[in-house]
Simulated scan of single mutants.
Amino acid sequence: MHSYSGTYGALLLGGLFASGFSGFVALQSLLYFKLFPNDGTPLKSLVLIVWAFDLAHTALVWASLWDYMITNIANVSYGEYIPETIALTIVLTAILTFLTQCFFAHRIFHLSRRNWYITAPVVILAVGRLACACVSGAEMIEMQYFENFRAKFRWLFSMGLALSSGADILITALLFILLRKSKADSVSLDDIIDACILYTFEIGSLTSVTTVVSLICWVVLDDSLIFLGLHFLIGKLYANSLLASLNSRQRFRRSRATVTAFDLLSMPHIQPLPAEFQNTHNSRNANCGVQVDVIKSVQYDVETGKE
């Protein structure tokens, strides 16, 4: 490594930002349990697992920084060494990524009316990314030095990041298409669905861009650990995207749209307003000067997809 700024500086900044995002994960987890105490056990368990993995990831990041900057600060060549804690952060990032991508794959599955042909590619990419990262972590421990790891397994680590980015792009594209289709089939849900579409792009672009930038730094910058500082953030962004998606249901519930629904992204499909309500709504608007909104709340079981 040629400079402290490209090694320890990059790791320090990555660790500081990762810790900040970890605080957001904790806040969103607590907010979730406060807002949705009646959610099913699977969702609550998922939130607890994500929170636990995120805390473990943060602890490993700071253990790595301590190893680099305190214990071995006098060893100039130690920047090339790969502590086991670094390898474990790679694996935990992959697990958080996998959980988040499977969560969105589950939503795609329901929005597409249980279409496995649409959902399967997302799951395959997510599993491939997890496998690449787990093998990369094991090989990092075996190789011990970044130079050795780059020489033999640069392609493997690169493939893992590429698969992760590909899964994000596919998830974003499928949710966009499915939500647009739901918008065409629905009545008076335009505002909420537009918000869902915008939110989907925001989540998908943030995680995907960070992953791509980390991949570019890994491939191009052989003499720095900037890629690793960025990689510290990836797991945090995925955890936050999952929790923010769950907590956004509260915002959609309070939407001022004519028709409200419970967590549109979790619904198996969006059903149009029944004809008798549409007729009543239209006739009242035609005969009176006062607009009357028909509010219909529909609650769906997330697991079964039934009303």
Rank of each mutant, 00 (worst) to 15 (best):
M69H: 00
P83T: 03
P83Q: 07
A26H: 11
K306A: 13
G128E: 02
Y117M: 12
L27F: 15
V219M: 10
L99V: 10
L48Q: 08
L233E: 07
A59S: 15
A195E: 12
T258G: 12
I108M: 05
I171S: 13
Y4W: 11
L111P: 07
S29G: 15
W116E: 05
G14M: 05
T200R: 00
A138E: 04
L65K: 05
N72I: 02
I197G: 06
M1E: 05
N282H: 14
G166K: 06
S45D: 09
E84P: 10
L31E: 11
V219K: 07
G166M: 07
L30I: 14
L163E: 00
G137W: 00
P83S: 07
D185S: 12
L16M: 10
I82P: 12
S224H: 08
L65T: 03
Q28V: 11
L13D: 08
A74I: 03
A138M: 11
D191F: 02
C134N: 11
G40E: 14
Y8L: 10
V302F: 09
T89D: 01
L175K: 09
F104Y: 09
L179V: 02
L175G: 10
P268N: 11
A87N: 01
I234A: 02
V187M: 04
S112F: 00
L189Q: 13
S266D: 11
V61S: 01
F33Y: 13
A162I: 12
V127H: 00
E84W: 01
S214L: 03
E276H: 14
F24G: 05
A94L: 03
E276K: 04
A133G: 13
I108D: 03
A286Q: 13
I270R: 03
A59I: 15
W155I: 07
S77Y: 11
V209R: 03
R150D: 07
K34L: 13
H269G: 12
Y117E: 08
K183R: 15
A26F: 12
A239N: 00
S245G: 10
V76K: 10
I197Q: 09
V76W: 14
L125S: 14
G23D: 06
L178V: 01
I118W: 01
T100F: 06
A63I: 07
I70P: 00
V127M: 08
G166V: 10
P121W: 03
T172E: 02
D67W: 15
A239G: 01
Q28L: 14
V25F: 05
R254H: 12
A275H: 10
R107W: 00
L43A: 08
R114C: 06
I226K: 10
A257V: 01
A87F: 00
F201G: 06
V123A: 14
K34W: 13
L265Y: 04
A184P: 02
M140T: 05
I73Y: 06
N72L: 04
V50D: 05
